[in-house]
């Protein structure tokens, strides 16, 4: 159909159509697997074998969730994951805040060199250090403990870098004014620097949470049989090897494990976007 719109307006409309088409495709690619997981977790096992598989659960089967929760010990695994993630997130927030403050506000010898060393840790994949770390954890008697699960992750170069950038945005005059008002570094950190860096702290908290919650390899290495400290990601894997080894139950467990992440992303979406686009636009 010929359009009466002027060329500039037509081009703008075309750009808009292309943009939304790409965004829709992206959303399908990202959300599609999640949707299928939820749908399949609600289908009876027999329906999963159908080709093509149903895209909507006409008669949702909720009992798979109950089975995964109680018989698959997901309640314990989720609690363990919550403890492990809580310790790691709190630890990273505290250590990153203190280190970032030191790099941003204190003057000490080799400050720049040390900061470069911190950044260099970002270049080393965790897998490279797994053998050494697992030996250390074992030597310390931390095998199958929350200490073994969490201590290697209590400090992060990324968090230090992120918060240092946030602290550098705080005008130096504020530190000097506070010094004249009688505030030492620790009090200034608590009363001024941390409140002003709240968006970055929230973003770091979300990143830490995602990384800790989704850990699989490390918990697999440092936890053994039994359910005392095993995390939910290991628990999902164990579901496959039990009498509950039905795909629909495993999928129900997966959905349960994802719920905390979804809640977190919805609540902290603003902070995440702000921290990722910080400085991109004025």
């Amino acid at each position: 159909m010929p359009s009466d719109a002027p060329p500039g307006r037509r081009a703008r409309r075309l750009r808009l159509v292309v943009r939304y088409t790409l965004l829709t495709l992206g959303a399908v690619v990202v959300l599609g697997p999640l949707y299928l997981t939820v749908v399949n977790s609600l289908l009876p096992a027999s329906a999963l074998a159908q080709r093509p598989p149903p895209l909507f659960p006409v008669h949702p089967q909720w009992h798979d969730y109950a089975a995964a929760w109680s018989q698959g010990h997901l309640d314990v695994y989720l609690r363990n994951s919550a403890i492990q993630t809580g310790i790691i997130v709190a630890g990273q927030l505290v250590t990153s805040t203190l280190a970032a403050y030191a790099f941003a506000f204190l003057r000490f010898p080799l400050r720049r060199t040390l900061f470069v060393v911190f950044l260099a840790t970002l270049m080393i994949p965790f897998e490279v250090t797994i053998v050494t770390n697992s030996t250390t954890v074992s030597d310390l008697g931390w095998y199958n403990t929350f200490a073994g699960l969490t201590v290697p992750f209590l400090a992060t170069g990324f968090g230090t870098f992120l918060l240092r950038q946030a602290f550098l945005q705080i005008p130096r005059d504020l530190r000097e004014a506070a010094a004249l008002d009688g505030y030492g570094h620790l009090r200034f950190l608590v009363r001024v620097a941390v409140p002003l860096a709240r968006p970055s702290l929230a973003a770091l908290g979300v990143f830490s949470f995602l990384a800790a919650w989704n850990q699989y390899l490390w918990p697999l290495i440092v936890t053994g049989s039994g359910t005392n400290v095993r995390t939910v990601q290991i628990g999902l894997k164990l579901l496959e090897g039990t009498q509950l080894s039905h795909v629909d139950v495993v999928l129900a467990g997966t959905v349960i494990a994802v719920v905390p992440l979804l809640v977190l992303l919805v609540v902290f979406q603003k902070q995440l976007v702000r921290s990722l686009t910080g400085g991109a636009v004025k």
Binding site: E176, A177, A179, L196
Partner: peptide, 19 residues
């Protein structure tokens, strides 16, 4: 130390705590 000198300073930027 600055805190023990009992002087108050007004900065060019005012140095107010924004939060």
């Amino acid at each position: 130390e600055a805190k023990d000198r009992d002087v108050a300073m007004v900065f060019q930027s005012y140095a107010l705590y924004p939060h």
